[in-house]
């Protein structure tokens, strides 16, 4: 019995135990204030489903040896374009959502391929280069949003007839299609069934991929490129595949995020999308060289719950709005912690 507990402890890792303990403490404090604990947890569930796919997007890139995909905005932009096109034609409900995904995925495959051409030329500095690719793409797309040939008056500036607005609402098209699908309430806890199911489906597909021949090959390329070469595997092929998968997941992740969030934020909106995702997978126990689907799931649950619970609770306890600061400190601190220990894995 004791040995099994020790094994579980080692599998879980000390940082995650501390975070989980801290979460529990916050929930107990929250119960003592006028905050509604089921309400907090409902919010947390939504945010988990909303951000989960972004975090999953980190898994293929890490496993292919490219490291954390700081260029996540490349995929996010593809997702935005998909959503915008669906909105332009006022496609409602599931139809809009599916069309958005069907448009976003091929775009993301193309963009991911181009992105991989760059990344494969800068082996060893993928994360640094990726960060700036993300920033540049977001900045470059700012011009596109202004020039894009969208005509639907709900999307463009009322004056001038050209250029997309900064914030667009999805309320009239497909906001919440997943969140409300089969949703139910129990003890005040609202469960966004459709959202969680969709997230679960994507997570299962990623998990399944890493059990296929190609998935195993990608893992080998990431773990020991020289061994992979000696086994006749093409390094760049699997690195490219990993980046494309990551980009596609980011694009799908965006459509899910947008329908849950209810708004599309253009221009500098997607600038920082990579950072919470990176923090999430690292909190879950991944390192820059090893990431499993379970790390992504555990990470997004812990990280997003922490954020949703910590903000209102600290606001209750401390005068002034400190929660945003706490969020930045926690997420960036976590990235810093994990980057300093490249080996990590289960011990991180």
């Amino acid at each position: 019995m004791k040995e099994r507990l020790v094994a579980i402890y080692h599998g879980f890792g000390l940082p995650r135990l501390i975070i989980a303990g801290f979460l529990l403490l916050l929930l107990i404090i929250a119960a003592g204030t006028e905050l509604s604990v089921p309400g907090l947890l409902s919010d947390a569930l939504v945010r988990i489903g909303q951000n989960g796919i972004y975090v999953l997007a980190m898994v293929p890139s890490i496993q292919a040896g490219v490291g954390l995909n700081f260029g996540l905005p490349v995929g996010v932009i593809c997702g935005i374009v998909g959503v915008l096109v669906a909105m332009e034609f006022t496609l409602l409900g599931f139809k809009g959502f599916l069309v958005a995904i069907l448009l976003a995925v091929p775009l993301a495959i193309g963009a991911g391929y181009l992105y991989s051409l760059l990344i494969n030329r800068v082996a060893g500095q993928e994360m640094m280069v990726g960060t700036y690719v993300g920033f540049s793409v977001v900045a470059g797309m700012c011009i596109f949003w202004l020039m894009a040939p969208f005509k639907n008056p709900a999307l463009i500036w009322p004056v001038g007839g050209q250029g997309l607005r900064v914030t667009l609402t999805l309320a009239d098209t497909f906001a919440g299609v997943l969140n409300n699908f089969l949703a139910f309430e129990i003890f005040g806890l609202k469960v966004p069934t459709g959202l969680l199911l969709f997230y679960g489906l994507i997570a299962f597909i990623v998990w399944l991929f890493f059990r296929t021949k190609a998935g195993v090959a990608m893992e080998v390329v990431g773990r020991n490129p020289r061994f992979a070469a000696a086994s006749g595997l093409s390094l760049n092929k699997y690195r490219t595949l990993g980046i494309i998968m990551s980009t596609v997941l980011a694009a799908i992740g965006y459509t899910v995020y947008a329908q849950s969030f209810g708004f599309v934020q253009l221009y500098n909106g997607p600038l920082m999308t990579a950072f919470p995702a990176v923090a999430g997978v690292l909190i879950g126990g991944a390192s820059t060289r090893e990431a499993k689907v379970r790390h992504a799931i555990l990470g997004v649950v812990l990280f997003q719950t922490l954020l949703t619970v910590a903000m209102p609770v600290t606001n209750q306890l401390i005068e002034g709005n400190i929660s945003e600061i706490a969020r930045v400190v926690v997420s960036n601190g976590m990235i810093l912690y994990a980057l300093t220990r490249a080996t990590g894995g289960e011990q991180a």
Partner: peptide, 9 residues
């Protein structure tokens, strides 16, 4: 160790 094995596997 460099080519023959995936040490972490």
């Amino acid at each position: 160790r460099g080519v023959g094995l995936v040490l972490e596997d």
